[in-house]
Amino acid sequence: MAQAAAQGVKPEQALAFIGLGLMQKMAGSGQDLPWIWSEAEDGGQADLAALRQRLELTQLALKTGAPLTTAEVSQLLGVRPTSEAVERGGLKARRLSRNVWKLSRLDDTDNRSDDAFRRRF
């Protein structure tokens, strides 16, 4: 380390080079490296463009209050609604009639009253 400092390399940089060399040797030996991120373990790659579009469409549905079909609610919530009202991710989809839904936000006051109810009984 003292030689590295004398040659203009900081001790932290020298330690990083040593660690990098060790990782390369281990990878070259064919060992399975548990600290390397694997897409298969994490559920694959995220489609961020589709996520952004889904979030923007959800915001638009909340702002306008437009009626939605079951397929549209399924796409926005990420789950097919199976009952009269479905809650997921701070949103509530309520069935108005056959294949007609309204999307709204869950109010914090509703959640608090539910929690208070649960605590009392």
Rank of each mutant, 00 (worst) to 15 (best):
S97E: 05
S83M: 01
K10M: 02
G65W: 07
S38L: 12
T70W: 02
R80W: 07
W35I: 05
W37M: 10
Q7L: 11
R88A: 02
L55D: 10
W35R: 05
L62V: 11
A27V: 06
F17T: 03
S83P: 00
A85E: 06
Q13A: 14
Q24K: 09
I36C: 04
A14K: 06
D114R: 05
D114Q: 04
K63T: 15
E12K: 13
D108T: 15
P11D: 05
R94L: 04
G89T: 07
L55E: 08
M23V: 06
W35M: 07
K92H: 02
D32K: 15
E87M: 13
K63S: 14
A5N: 11
G90D: 04
R52A: 14
L57P: 00
W101C: 08
D114M: 03
Q59A: 15
F117S: 00
A49Y: 08
E72M: 04
A5H: 08
G21W: 12
L51A: 09
L48I: 03
E12G: 08
N99H: 11
L60I: 01
S97P: 00
R98T: 04
S83N: 02
A46R: 15
S38P: 01
A4R: 11
Q31Y: 07
A71G: 00
K10T: 10
A49D: 13
D42K: 07
S83A: 03
E56R: 15
G78H: 04
